[in-house]
């Protein structure tokens, strides 16, 4: 008793094709490039302190405005003769850990509220959506400026501000996707069989939204990097004295003519890391689309 559509012998072939296509998906060009770049960024962020060639804080007044690559200054030096490469490494670590921590907080808050809204219609949904609507009505950079200025400089004030303000995107996507999964018949079947709410969430819903979460994580990371560098560009994120890409850029701006690299190096670094994260998001989205298609067929 087999159905006619695929002959029994075709099943192994289908399986092989599936495995091959999975392998091919991973070899998605965007994901490979993004993977390499993310690895480089991660290595620089973690082992950055070993790669510094000079003291990032201590300048050599004899070596002010050294152009890129000269006298051992890989990326040149600034107006106080400080090594830009070493300062950029410190900034990299600051920016990345800032964006990463804030993103994780966003992920936790946003997906919890999104799942809650999807799972419980009634007042939990109303409240979750009302809070999200309210925050979304309010540009988070505006709030962030006010809050960071008032609370003060430092890592945690900045991270917590971004973490508690920038999560609505997660809530919206998780709510939309989880709601659609809760409507599927397989979730209904599980409920009828007596499977508990929590297990349905863990076993059916979370795996179903995992791909989307990864995509937003990447795109949102890029957004947070821009926000963080913008704030420190304005001089209100990082504590005074800590070099970040934003404030290196702000300093470089004053010597635009004399030493253009002081501006171009941090600007380039910001652009490259933002593009990397966008690339990762795009690649993961393309991969999950492709896999989704192979599941649907």
């Amino acid at each position: 008793m087999t159905d006619i559509a695929p002959p029994a012998s075709a099943n192994t072939a289908t399986l092989d094709r599936y495995k091959r296509s999975r392998f091919k998906n991973i070899s998605n060009f965007e994901v490979i490039v993004a993977g390499i770049l993310v690895t480089i960024i991660a290595v620089l962020a973690i082992f950055g302190s070993f790669l510094q060639t000079h003291d990032p804080m201590q300048g050599d007044l004899m070596a002010r405005f050294t152009p890129v690559g000269e006298k051992g200054y890989t990326l040149g030096s600034d107006n106080l003769g400080r090594d830009l490469w070493s300062r950029m490494l410190v900034g990299l670590r600051w920016s990345m850990s800032c964006a990463l921590t804030a993103n994780l907080i966003n992920l936790a808050i946003g997906s919890t509220l999104g799942l809650l809204a999807a799972e419980r219609p009634g007042w939990p949904r109303t409240i979750s959506r009302q809070i999200t609507d309210t925050l979304q009505c309010f540009p988070f950079l505006v709030v962030a400026i006010v809050v960071v200025v008032i609370i003060g400089h430092g890592f945690w004030p900045l991270v917590l501000t971004l973490g508690f303000l920038a999560w609505p995107i997660y809530q919206r996507v998780v709510f939309a996707e989880a709601s659609s999964i809760f409507q599927r018949d397989y979730v209904k079947a599980a409920r009828i069989a007596g499977v508990g709410r929590f297990r349905i969430m863990i076993q059916h819903v979370l795996p179903g939204i995992r791909a989307s979460l990864m995509v937003i994580f990447a795109f949102h990371f890029a957004g947070l990097l821009i926000a963080e560098s913008a704030l420190s560009f304005l001089g209100i994120g990082a504590p005074l004295g800590v070099p970040t890409w934003g404030n290196i850029l702000a300093e470089g701006r004053q010597y635009m003519l004399r030493a253009p690299w002081m501006m171009l190096v941090p600007a380039g670094a910001i652009v490259i890391s933002v593009v990397t994260m966008n690339l990762a998001g795009d690649g993961i989205a393309a991969m999950s689309r492709k896999r989704g298609r192979s599941i649907d067929v």
């Binding site: 159905d3 006619i4 559509a5 695929p6 099943n11 289908t14 399986l15 599936y18 192979s294 599941i295 649907d296 067929v297």
Partner: peptide, 8 residues
């Protein structure tokens, strides 16, 4: 096997 490997 996964569902997509089966016919309707």
């Amino acid at each position: 096997r996964l569902p997509h490997e089966f016919s309707g």
